[in-house]
Nucleic acid binder design. Structure first.
Lengths: 111, 111
DNA sequence: GCAAAGCGCAACCCTTTGGTTGCTTTTATC
DNA sequence: GATAAAAGCAACCAAAGGGTTGCGCTTTGC
């Protein structure tokens, strides 16, 4: 399982609208340069660069220098880890609710 | 589907270690008062209150005033929505990768 | 009815963050 | 080899975030 620290880092990276949209744009599996990504937003190249660094640190994208370009692509492992974290919490909840439910049924059972 | 704005709000709420742990502690399905939750952390009650407000705004927990207590419990819908968002992105990626894969196979096919 | 528990509100403080501008460095291209 | 494209680096700035303290309000309980 992914650690709490890693999970919160991943969620923090996804918790910005611009970064979330960058991730969504990269979900077509293709790599993009910083300039190319910047053209999608009303932001400076440097601002986008900073966002990409945050995503990279969280393990959500990977960077590759190709010629004079820095190309970024999605690292699906990061997202999978985050999903699994949420699934774990949800399962805990479901389980607890199930126990509660059976407890209620047992108590309301007049047998 | 959940909107980008909602999703980034949810991820932002989960992107803090303290808040993530609050969510985990509430995953047993039971409600807790602010003072009770505060005792789990080395933080002031007010600090925890602020975190709870962020979680509430993101739709991850619900608040209920009972007597002199404010009891919070997990709202699993918020987490489900976040999970579904990540699943969508992952599926897009898988799909794109599938297309890429079949393209490669077609081109390398000597037939 | 009074003390204490639980909470809300407001002010304040320091750090992080998201953004900018300006300048240098590396790589293509003609 | 000069020019332009792409990116990196550094300084700076305003706003948001996470935290605190202090005080007042409601509910409980003796």
């Amino acid at each position: 399982m992914i650690s709490f620290a890693e999970a919160s880092s991943t969620f923090h990276a996804l918790g910005d609208p611009t970064r979330l949209e960058i991730v969504a744009r990269l979900s077509d599996g293709e790599s993009r340069s910083i300039t190319s990504l910047s053209s999608d937003f009303d932001l400076t190249r440097q601002a986008v660069t900073k966002h990409l660094r945050v995503l990279e640190m969280a393990g959500l994208v990977t960077k590759a220098r190709i010629g004079r370009e820095s190309r970024f692509e999605l690292e699906p492992r990061g997202m999978t880890d985050a999903r699994e974290f949420l699934e774990t919490v949800s399962k805990d909840w479901d389980l607890a609710l199930g126990r509660l439910q059976s407890l209620v049924e047992r108590n309301s059972d007049p047998g």
